[in-house]
Design a protein around this nucleic acid. Structure first.
Lengths: 188, 188
DNA sequence: CCTTTGACTCAACGGGCGTTGACTCAACGA
DNA sequence: TCGTTGAGTCAACGCCCGTTGAGTCAAAGG
């Protein structure tokens, strides 16, 4: 109600933000197809037509909602990278950012999400391969990456009891040797 | 053409089979939502109405297409189970059965597929946990299971270059130590 | 041979979707 | 103060989907 007398620019910014938040939440929860523009608009307290006016079409809204500016992470060693990966299991809320979950939720069924996901994963594989840099470095890096994806899928997307019930620390502790086995016995 | 003069029962059987094959292929390729009844019927060379007549509705067709009679696998040791899992990377065609891929493709976005997938994975986790039977057995079993899911997602569903390019044997060789680390150093 | 069954088609339905264009009205700028 | 802009709404469009009911025609069977 008090929002009625905000300046135009600020008002616009907040509305766009509400739409993006609603979009991220719904895309993450039910995926691209089932997250309808109408439902997103309703969740943001806005008319569906406004969503189109601001973002053009549903696909563009999705891309905007999923867009991430990945921190480049300067050249770390394999051990540190593994610890960073294990740390992603442990974010404050116990969850990855909504934009990441939104992308992962749709990556198997929505072509644009698949492309997005492959680019992101390729980037991570490249960074890891650089740190491993031995025999089969790229394949090892890909396996490490997909192990993390698999565990995340089980924990956050499928919500398997065994994984949701476990603490991030326990998971990290049990997973560490498996990842180390792939990154190889590098000198520290 | 010669099919015109087949007995009724046989004709029916074959048509149902063609519909199921087309359904499995399309569900595996594009997922539940994008695999339309119309497209499945077209691929099977049949009218969409016939699909409904035989299977009731789209959801029932999906369940039928995805249904698997999992071999119970009598109580094996952890090592043998790991080898069995690694062997699934290595099926004749280099691919899991279409019904499995269909289920996996939709498990993140279609509620029924998610339920189906969770049941299947729970079954595998239980079998593995029994073979591991130590500290954190169920969590370890879940991690092993999701590692295999992650690798399969990367190889068959996302089709990452690094994984599609590698031979199943190489993947199995590199993955074995990681799985052994989780199943624990059991006596053989 | 003639009725009945059942595989299969055809045309249509109702509904939800993404998207559009015309509209309202409050904030802005000269 | 008054015309202009721009945030936001409303009602509708066309499309494609899953699904249905009536119909066709060859095989089955007494």
């Amino acid at each position: 109600m008090g929002e009625r007398l905000l300046p135009r620019a600020e008002r616009r910014r907040r509305t766009e933000g509400r739409i993006l938040d609603a979009a991220r939440a719904l895309f993450a929860e039910v995926g691209y197809e089932r997250a309808t523009v109408r439902a997103i608009a309703r969740a943001a307290g806005v008319d569906p037509a406004l969503v189109m006016q601001y973002f053009g079409n549903k696909q563009a809204l999705f891309q905007e909602a999923v867009r991430m500016t990945p921190v480049p992470e300067p050249g770390l060693g394999a051990e540190e990278l593994v610890e960073t990966l294990l740390g992603t299991l442990n974010l404050k809320m116990g969850e990855l950012p909504q934009s990441t979950l939104a992308m992962m939720r749709s990556m198997l069924t929505h072509p644009e999400a698949a492309t997005s996901a492959k680019e992101t994963l390729d980037g991570q594989i490249n960074r890891l391969a650089e740190a491993i840099s031995g025999e089969d470095a790229r394949l090892r890096a890909a396996l490490v990456t997909m192990i993390m994806v698999g565990v995340t899928v089980g924990r956050q997307l499928l919500e398997l009891d065994e994984l949701r019930g476990a603490s991030p620390e326990d998971i990290a502790r049990l997973l560490r040797p498996s990842l180390r086995a792939l990154t190889g016995p590098e000198a520290s």
